[in-house]
């Protein structure tokens, strides 16, 4: 696809709509899901099944007083929420929703997503530092140490997949797994991954990392409200807080997309029968990412929060050694077979 101005404008418009709608309605899903797991209906009265709740919350947040506390570092304080939302939006540029639906395929798409994910971690640090609040500061230090710790096993596992498919381009990684669910990278018994039976464990590692990277329960140490008020966004009111919220949900979508592309075959149909619902198309991709997001919500409302030591130990003592071992094993097996 040639990159004309019109194409770019349409792509940006669609990306913003997709991210905005997802961020808004995933909040609704979260609240309904919370209700479901706690045996109550959740938002019901505002619109059918509470479907009007996200726009209502949005208008309320936008019309609330934007309070800048005295003594904060104003520039940093204002920039942080934008910095939280922006990388998530940018990352959608390179994510392939199907063979044709991709805004701009980049050769090093994986690298780009990780680079912007690191920028998201910086926004947390900046938010905590700028808001002149000791709870926010402690929380942002926690969140950053967590993000850094979980980026390493995620990167190593991603490198394993890059070794398998021989490309850093997300479209090619997904395209290499087409042709049935037995070709997906999650399964170990196939020639493409060198008969490495540890592939399901790799999938588990990257899934746990995706949950931890997005600061979600049971790893939401950054927002532990029983100890740190509200975490790094303690001092943010109105839409500043709203942007952090939307950034979090956009990051969840990015994480789910990444897991889907790397391990679940992207847009590939699980049983390619050749007629319409079973051909490879964008529907399968959306189905997969929303199933992963459903599991995210399920985990959040099922498990209690871990401790910060438990969280860091899990990464440094278990996930990083296992993923390193898996990387070496995959490299050796790919050489053998």
């Amino acid at each position: 696809m040639s990159l004309t101005l019109l194409n770019a404008a349409v792509a940006v418009f669609i990306a913003i709509c997709f991210v905005g709608l997802n961020a808004a309605y995933l909040v609704w899903c979260e609240r309904k899901g919370a209700g479901f797991y706690q045996r109550r209906p959740g938002p019901m009265e505002n619109g059918p099944w509470g479907l009007l709740q996200p726009p209502i919350d949005g208008v309320k947040l936008m019309t609330k007083q934007l309070l800048i506390p005295g003594g904060v570092d104003k520039a940093i304080f204002m920039v942080a929420p934008v910095l939280a939302m922006f990388p998530a939006l940018i990352s959608f540029v390179t994510i392939p929703f199907s063979k044709n639906i991709v805004a701009h395929p980049i050769n090093v798409g994986v690298l780009m997503i990780f680079a912007f994910a690191a920028l998201g971690g910086m926004s947390l640090l900046v938010a905590g530092w700028g808001s002149r609040n000791k709870y926010a500061m402690i929380s942002s230090v926690r969140a950053v140490s967590q993000t850094v710790a979980y980026e390493i096993p995620m990167l190593i596992t991603t490198i394993t997949i890059v070794l398998v498919s021989g490309s850093l381009n997300l479209s090619e990684i997904a395209a290499s797994q087409l042709g049935g669910f037995w070709k997906w990278n999650i399964w170990g018994f196939q020639e493409a991954v060198g008969y490495n039976i540890l592939m399901p464990i790799s999938f588990l590692i990257i899934f746990v990392c995706a949950v931890a990277e997005t600061n979600r329960a049971p790893f939401d140490l950054g927002e532990a409200e029983s100890e740190l008020v509200a975490g790094f966004h303690t001092e943010y009111s109105s839409m500043g807080f709203g942007l952090f919220f939307m950034g979090e949900y956009a990051n969840i979508v990015i994480g789910a997309c990444l897991v889907t592309i790397l391990f679940l075959g992207g847009w590939s149909s699980p049983v390619p029968l050749g007629f319409f619902p079973f051909t490879d198309h964008v529907g399968w991709f959306l189905l997969k990412i929303y199933m992963i997001i459903f599991v995210f919500i399920w985990i959040r409302w099922t498990f209690p929060r871990t401790t910060i030591y438990g969280l860091l130990n899990l990464s440094w003592k278990y996930l990083i050694p296992i993923s390193l071992f898996n990387l070496l094993l995959t490299a050796a097996l790919l050489k053998v077979f």
Binding site: R31, A34, G35, R40, P41, G42, P43, M44, E45, N46, G50, Q53, I56, D57, L67, E225, V229, A230, H233, T234, E235, Y236, S237, F241
Partner: peptide, 17 residues
């Protein structure tokens, strides 16, 4: 009793929100 039916269940820990 489920206060969330009216969209009022979001107990915010920070007074700013």
């Amino acid at each position: 009793f489920d206060l969330s039916r009216f969209g009022a269940e979001v107990f915010r820990p920070s007074p700013r929100q």
